[in-house]
């Protein structure tokens, strides 16, 4: 039992370790600095969005519209480049993302629409605005050389994007585990009524959670558009599922009240490592999907069936 609980607690780390170990043995050329830095860079786009979603899931809400926000923010950032210049346009792009989040929050918190349905609706709305703005054509930015610079690898390890991702995870970790507002977030997610009773404004936290999630999707979208020098209405259409999978593999519960920054880091890295390793071996995409799906289901199954001695707030969620 002790052993199982140990497994349970560190399952993300274990799966990540196993993935890396197996890949290192079986996949020629996997263990190299280039693989690491590029794999990390690929994970960081999903990772930045995952950070936002981790917070929102802990607060007990979900956001299906992140993929559309990702595309929309990128388009805004590219579109305004000629008028505002590169950096101000990027900032406006992120703000546009945050505004989408405020709209989600409005629907979910003020009008009390279930977050799954509300963001399903806004997923359609934001995506159609993206098509509208661009007339369904990909839109080119002004400075392609900037994109090439953005893709550069520093110290053989980091791209600008992966460094930003790592830094954000660190901040998130500190926020969630060391601050009062971080703890309040868990309280709201596991039992909003009790949280309200103890003087925490559940609504305000949920609203800010939506804004944060969309702002992070905006950051990722703007970075992606800058890196590709393109704002495209079809970007991010496959993203939402990948992000939710990464966050859940990382041990965050979709019912709220539980999750961690390091878990999300583990989830993102596991999926990135797994995909890279399988692509190295030319494993067909459909087999990759089976493996990814199995890992997702098995980890969640494990989470459900092995009893834990965790903080009580998870017990409250389980009763729900």
């Amino acid at each position: 039992m002790e052993f199982l609980i140990f497994l349970q607690k560190y399952r993300v780390g274990i799966v990540l370790g196993l993935t890396l170990a197996i890949s290192a043995v079986w996949v020629p050329g996997f263990v190299s600095l280039t693989t690491f830095s590029l794999g990390f860079d690929r994970g960081s786009t999903v990772g930045l969005v995952a950070i936002g979603l981790t917070v929102l899931l802990i607060a007990g809400k979900i956001d299906l519209s992140v993929g559309s926000v990702f595309a929309l923010s990128g388009i805004v950032a590219i579109m305004l480049q000629p008028a505002l210049g590169l950096w101000p346009a990027a900032v406006v792009g992120v703000l546009a993302g945050a505004a989408c989040g405020a709209f989600n929050g409005l629907l979910s918190v003020v009008f009390k629409v279930n977050s799954l349905v509300a963001t399903l609706a806004t997923m359609l709305i934001f995506r159609s605005i993206a098509h509208w703005l661009t007339d369904s054509q990909p839109m080119a930015g002004t400075d392609i050389m900037f994109s090439v610079r953005l893709a550069q690898i520093y110290f053989d390890l980091f791209t600008l994007r992966s460094a930003l991702f790592l830094f954000s995870i660190l901040l998130l970790h500190i926020w969630l585990s060391r601050t009062v507002s971080g703890r309040n977030l868990f309280a709201v997610g596991s039992n909003p009524v009790a949280a309200e009773a103890s003087g925490i404004s559940a609504d305000r936290i949920a609203f800010l959670g939506f804004v944060f999630a969309s702002a992070m999707a905006g950051v990722a979208g703007v970075l992606q558009s800058l890196a590709a020098n393109t704002g495209s209405p079809v970007f991010g259409s496959e993203m939402t599922v990948a992000v939710i999978a990464a966050v859940v593999v990382g041990g965050t519960r979709i019912e709220g009240g539980r999750g961690s920054a390091l878990g999300t880091l583990g989830g993102v890295l596991t999926i990135a490592a797994l995909t890279t390793a399988m692509e190295f071996q030319s494993v067909p995409a459909y087999v990759q999907r089976v493996v990814a799906g199995l890992i997702l289901i098995l980890l969640v199954l494990f989470d459900r069936t092995v009893p834990t001695n965790r903080r009580t707030n998870s017990a409250v969620t389980a009763a729900e």
């Binding site: 979900i62 799954l116 599922v241 939710i244 999978a245 859940v248 519960r253 979709i254 019912e255 067909p284 995409a285 459909y286 087999v287 990759q288 999907r289 089976v290 990814a292 799906g293 199995l294 997702l296 289901i297 969640v300 199954l301 459900r304 069936t305 389980a318």
Partner: peptide, 27 residues
């Protein structure tokens, strides 16, 4: 029976099933 969140369960099962069906016909 196990109490997994439906979103995650159906997402995961869907991914796996589609992958298996595709491998059966060679993609």
């Amino acid at each position: 029976y196990i109490g997994i969140n439906p979103i995650i369960a159906t997402l995961g099962v869907g991914t796996i099933v589609l992958g298996i069906v595709e491998s059966l016909v060679g993609g």
